[in-house]
Design a protein around this nucleic acid. Structure first.
Lengths: 231, 231
DNA sequence: ACAATTGGTGTTAGCCTGACACCAACAACC
DNA sequence: GGTTGTTGGTGTCAGGCTAACACCAATTGT
């Protein structure tokens, strides 16, 4: 009797890639990092950074590696987004792409990795034509980002370590694409108990009154509990 | 000058699998379908149904195929959950598993596929030891199911085509693990406009007053808009 | 017919949301 | 140094929504 079971032939094994949509706030605009492809297919086209997963590496490790190659940062917010695996999404053969979303502070600078001729920030609202199905991935990432922002506290991840409430509000407004009431915004975030007041102020950078700096309480629960449809 | 770019060697290609967590409501209990593995590794252990993705097949097609092999149904709710890819999660080598969640009506019966000696429903609250990292996958699926139920209308997917409001409420209560107020529950769902009243009643199946049967309005928007943290 | 069981319906108090205006602290300019 | 402009920071209130709550209706079984 047969006790073993055949694995698929090598020809059926796909390639495994991770692609990372890296968001940041620059010049009061929501931007994401794109690289220009140095090799075919889609040579010369803009794409989101990514690459193949190494043998002994977890998916998240691979995503962090790609992220670090392009930006130099590693201790930032990173979350798995979705896995794209249409059979013909890559002309070289079957390539499965596990997409991640990263949020990096505004002071991070881009740098080109090995596979990319250039790496540059692009406004999320005015993107060039992208390679592969990357437009779809970006679309999905944007949706997820807005959605998360509405009911969690990830907004901080887009700002420097210390920030003013106005900067935080501007970040929310930029991502959500709508204006928020100042007093209500402040009340909510302060009552949520996820901010820590510092003794310092942001001085001399604008011409108005200096604003108090706040810090994200890393010890607080990461996800603000969403309000529920049923009690 | 080099204009091509090497692909990873075949040895680095992983195997690609889909695994499907199939939920259903049976005997007023949230249950999920498990199969007993017929081949090593983990021969004899319970596992969630799954298998390798064929070359020309999309991920969702593969998930629907596995689903149909085990249950015979195909037109049901199916959603990608998460991709698990730890390097050593499968002793046979690198296997990437794209996990899906399926919700099937209560009247579906299990049937063993080719790779499984048995297929049976198990209470989600009392599961046996599972193969691979499947316990983790199930945990994650349960979390997602509860979460979605709180702010969307997927509850119907667990019920037959026509159902009473009491049955729907019982479904919500079973999954969420808490009791809901009857009047508030009815009011919300009726006001949401996603239910369609039928002319029929469920008669003779219980000893009380017959209950009106409702139907899910497939033409309505699938996702009830979640309430938002910021207006 | 009587008991038991399930189906179906409205009101209200309290909370939360969203809308709204003014004074404070600093910089730039005169 | 005073005046103007700019940004920071604070409290209230009305209205809507949520959650809590009890009784009559229609059927089955005895």
């Amino acid at each position: 009797m047969d006790t073993s079971h055949p694995l698929p032939p090598d020809a059926e094994r796909p390639l495994l890639a991770v692609d990372v949509v890296i968001f940041s706030l620059r010049q009061r605009d929501l931007q994401l990092l794109l690289v220009r492809r140095r090799y075919p297919p889609f040579k010369g086209r803009w794409a989101i950074p990514g690459g193949f997963v190494h043998v002994a590496e977890s998916l998240e490790q691979a995503a962090r590696r790609e992220l670090e190659e392009e930006t130099g940062v590693h201790a930032v917010y990173l979350e798995q987004l979705y896995t794209f695996g249409e059979p013909r999404r890559d002309p070289r053969g079957r390539v499965i792409s596990v997409a991640y979303v990263a949020l990096v502070p505004a002071d991070v600078t881009a740098r080109a990795g090995d596979d990319a001729a250039q790496a540059d920030w692009h406004s999320a609202h005015a993107l060039p034509a992208l390679a592969f199905d990357h437009a779809e991935i970006v679309q999905y990432a944007l949706q997820r980002l807005r959605y998360k922002l509405e009911y969690t506290a990830v907004g901080f991840e887009l700002l420097p370590h210390e920030f003013t409430l106005s900067e935080l509000q501007a970040a929310y407004e930029t991502v959500l694409g709508e204006r928020l009431d100042k007093r209500n915004f402040r009340r909510r975030l302060l009552e949520a108990g996820i901010l820590e007041e510092t003794e310092r102020y942001r001085e001399g950078e604008s011409q108005g009154r200096p604003a108090r700096l706040y810090r994200y309480r890393r010890d607080a629960v990461t996800e603000v509990k969403a309000r529920r449809l049923f009690p």
